[in-house]
């Protein structure tokens, strides 16, 4: 890529930052060039972020209607899915899946709830009552 072809698309995903790219100068030799974003990359990032936001919103609604436990909301909001939440919490995937149902979640021991508090860096109140989270 030529130096003057390095995209400067002011991508919102960069949040005002600039990344370093490698490109060729007029003599055809390499140099570092800062880029404020590339629309192509930014579109891909936004797609992934929007997908996660969508899941979070859906989970929030499902928590309100009592279909899912607050854990579902926190899991998506903190960009986890069942496999990596299982790895991080130390619970098995089937346990995490069960904890996503309100019936099981409401009966979880203090100790198990504390594990989730620690994973998400939340207080017990914030974990149990999703209205206490700002968003």
């Amino acid at each position: 890529m030529r130096e003057d072809k390095v995209p400067q698309d002011n991508s919102p995903t960069y949040d005002g930052h600039k990344k370093l790219m490698y490109a060729t100068d007029k003599e055809g030799h390499y140099t570092g060039v800062q880029s404020s974003g590339w629309e192509v990359e930014s579109f891909a990032t936004s797609m992934a972020v929007e997908d996660l936001q969508q899941l979070t919103l859906e989970a929030k609604a499902a928590v309100k209607t009592g279909e899912l436990s607050p854990l579902a909301y926190h899991m998506h909001k903190h960009r986890f899915d069942i496999p990596n939440l299982s790895q991080v919490s130390g619970f098995f995937q089937w346990q995490v899946k069960r904890h996503l149902t309100p019936k099981v979640f409401n009966r979880l021991s203090q100790r198990k709830l504390e594990i989730y508090c620690d994973v998400f860096a939340l207080s017990m109140r914030q974990l149990i009552n999703i209205e206490d989270n700002n968003e």
Partner: peptide, 10 residues
């Protein structure tokens, strides 16, 4: 496809 692009560029 978005995932490939992100691994490659982001």
């Amino acid at each position: 496809l978005g995932n490939i692009v992100r691994m490659q560029e982001e």
